Structures are given as structure tokens and as C-alpha cells.
Amino acid sequence: MNLESYYIPKQNISNPKGEDAHFIHKADYQTIGVADGVGGWTQRGVDEGKYARELMKNCVLALDSENKGVVNPMMVLNEAYFKTKAPGSSTACIITLTRDNYLHVVNVGDSGFMLFRDGEMVYKSPIQQRGFNCPYQLGRSKGSDRPSSAEELKVAVKERDILVVGTDGLFDNMFVSEMKEIIGNVEKEGLTPKELAWTLAELASYNSLDKDGDTPFAQAKRFAGCGQDKGGKVDDITVIVAYIVL
């Protein structure tokens, strides 16, 4: 995979690092991960992103400690989870490209990915949530989830597929049609993975601040009967883009 990332933390003077965290492990393993620290911990005096950052760091350590070769995302997540002691909780999505051309994925919560082929979205990872804006979340506190709650799946990929991985700050603020329009210009404009990640993140950020526009978040809110609001969801936005090379 040829891959890069881009991160836009929401403006928060008290927490400039934001709530999201991610990793890209190119050497030996084609594995990536994203995590989104769940809001609400600030009220308890906890940095909402600390758990996510420690979890992703421990995923990298788990990868480095594995024998070179086959990566088992569930084992990585389990090891990282039990080594993460920070207070808080987060979503998590870990993806590796297998030797037989599949994406092997474990996902907890509403971070996730979309797979595009020939300009069309061919797969979107399912969301795990207990209700509107209430995703599953890993953590050690009462009421948090464990790795056993993760959904594990495999998705076949082809040469030149485009993988877009992100936290909910991306998917809550961009419709698939908007992503398709941008991705459709990848070859014509010669966009690199870094440039595509930046373009997607910047548009999601713009939409998140548009109080009058329609967004997936606004539609989900209306569908859940939580109001008729329009506009985006101000949130941290992490985007990882991978061009599949087999």
C-alpha cells in the first residue's frame, strides 16, 4: 500500500493535541490504525485524547514485538488494550493488508473505512453504536467495551483500489458523493495519497463549521428524532489514504 495521513484537531486551547490518534506501520507490515478519544472525560479532568494516543502507541509496540510476517489485528488490539492504562476511552480501527489481497480489519465504534474502486464506493465498514452519537468504546472503566466487542472482517481488494480510513469527524461531515467527486480526480490531477488525505480532511473541516449545510451527522440526528438541526459536527478529523498496490 502507498499510504499517508492528515490530521486536523478541532480548536481547543486546553487540548491542542486533540482527541484523535493514529499510526501507519509501513516497515514489514502494511498496517494502519485510528482511534478517537470519546468526549465527556474532560468533565472528570481527563485529557480525552490520552487514552487514544496510548492505545495507538501500544499497537505499534505490539506489531514490533510480533514475528515478521502475518499480522493478526485482533491480537494486536488485545495486546495494546491490556497494556493501555491511561484513563479515558476511545474507538479503534486496525487494518492490515494480507498476502492474499484482503483487508483484515478489527473495529470498535464509529471510526472506520471506505473502499473505492473505479471511482465508486464498494464497501463501507459498519458502525458499532448503542444509539445516536454513542459509539462502542474501548476502556478500562465501568461501562466501557473490551476487545471482545470488536467486529472482525475481511474485505477483498484489487490493484488501484483507494482505501479511505478515518474517525467520525470525517464520515459525519462528508457524504459519499462528495468523496467520490474528489476521488474521481485522483488520476486526472495526479493526487498523491498525502494530497488526497489533505483534500478530504479540509473539506470535512469546512463542512463541520457550516451551520446551514446538510451533513451525514445532521441527517442521522434527524433520523434519530434528536431535532431538525442542520450543519456539521465540529470534531477532530483524521484521514488516512492508501492506494492499493499488489
Results as ranks from 00 to 15, higher is better:
residue 7 Y to T: 09
residue 34 V to W: 13
residue 38 V to H: 10
residue 26 K to G: 11
residue 16 P to I: 06
residue 15 N to G: 00
residue 18 G to I: 06
residue 22 H to G: 04
residue 23 F to D: 05
residue 29 Y to D: 02
residue 17 K to L: 15
residue 44 R to K: 15
residue 28 D to W: 08
residue 11 Q to V: 02
residue 11 Q to N: 03
residue 5 S to T: 10
residue 37 G to I: 03
residue 28 D to Y: 07
residue 42 T to W: 15
residue 37 G to P: 10
residue 41 W to P: 11
residue 33 G to F: 07
residue 14 S to Q: 14
residue 37 G to H: 10
residue 7 Y to H: 09
residue 36 D to Q: 14
residue 37 G to T: 13
residue 25 H to Y: 15
residue 12 N to E: 01
residue 44 R to M: 15
residue 34 V to M: 05
residue 31 T to Y: 04
residue 24 I to L: 14
residue 16 P to A: 08
residue 24 I to D: 08
residue 21 A to E: 02
residue 28 D to V: 01
residue 8 I to G: 02
residue 31 T to F: 11
residue 27 A to L: 05
residue 37 G to R: 09
residue 24 I to F: 14
residue 5 S to A: 12
residue 29 Y to T: 11
residue 12 N to Y: 00
residue 33 G to W: 08
residue 37 G to S: 12
residue 33 G to Q: 10
residue 10 K to T: 02
residue 7 Y to E: 06
residue 33 G to R: 15
residue 12 N to H: 04
residue 20 D to L: 14
residue 40 G to E: 09
residue 37 G to E: 07
residue 36 D to S: 09
residue 21 A to K: 01
residue 14 S to C: 02
residue 18 G to Y: 03
residue 46 V to T: 14
residue 35 A to K: 06
residue 16 P to D: 03
residue 34 V to P: 13
residue 16 P to H: 10
residue 20 D to V: 06
residue 40 G to F: 03
residue 23 F to M: 07
residue 27 A to T: 08
residue 27 A to E: 10
residue 45 G to H: 08
residue 21 A to Y: 04
residue 38 V to F: 12
residue 5 S to V: 03
residue 32 I to F: 11
